[in-house]
């Protein structure tokens, strides 16, 4: 699994950090740090985080190289 966050778009709502804390963590009050290639076992959590992002800043490519948007209709916005 791979992911990237458009940090121009990110406004630090931190929904992702609640939903997938192993992949997304807040650094200070507002800065987001993410793991670009989290373990595939976090797939469901990461997908929920991407869907919950209020500004749709998270792009995910699923395990096996299938872009999340093509597989399940999840947000693939960047």
């Amino acid at each position: 699994m791979r992911l990237v966050v458009d940090l121009n778009r990110c406004q630090g709502y931190a929904q992702c950090a609640f939903l997938a804390p192993d992949a997304f963590t807040m650094h200070g009050d507002e800065a987001l740090m993410f793991d670009s290639q989290p373990d595939d076992r976090q797939w469901e959590a990461v997908l929920r985080a991407a869907e919950a992002c209020p500004v749709k800043a998270i792009t995910v490519e699923g395990p096996g190289g299938v872009p999340a948007g093509e597989r399940s209709g999840a947000s693939g916005v960047a």
Partner: peptide, 15 residues
């Protein structure tokens, strides 16, 4: 030390 240097590959939006 949170992410290895070779673990920042960009996701593909499509093939």
């Amino acid at each position: 030390d949170r992410v290895p240097a070779d673990h920042t590959k960009l996701p593909r939006r499509r093939p």
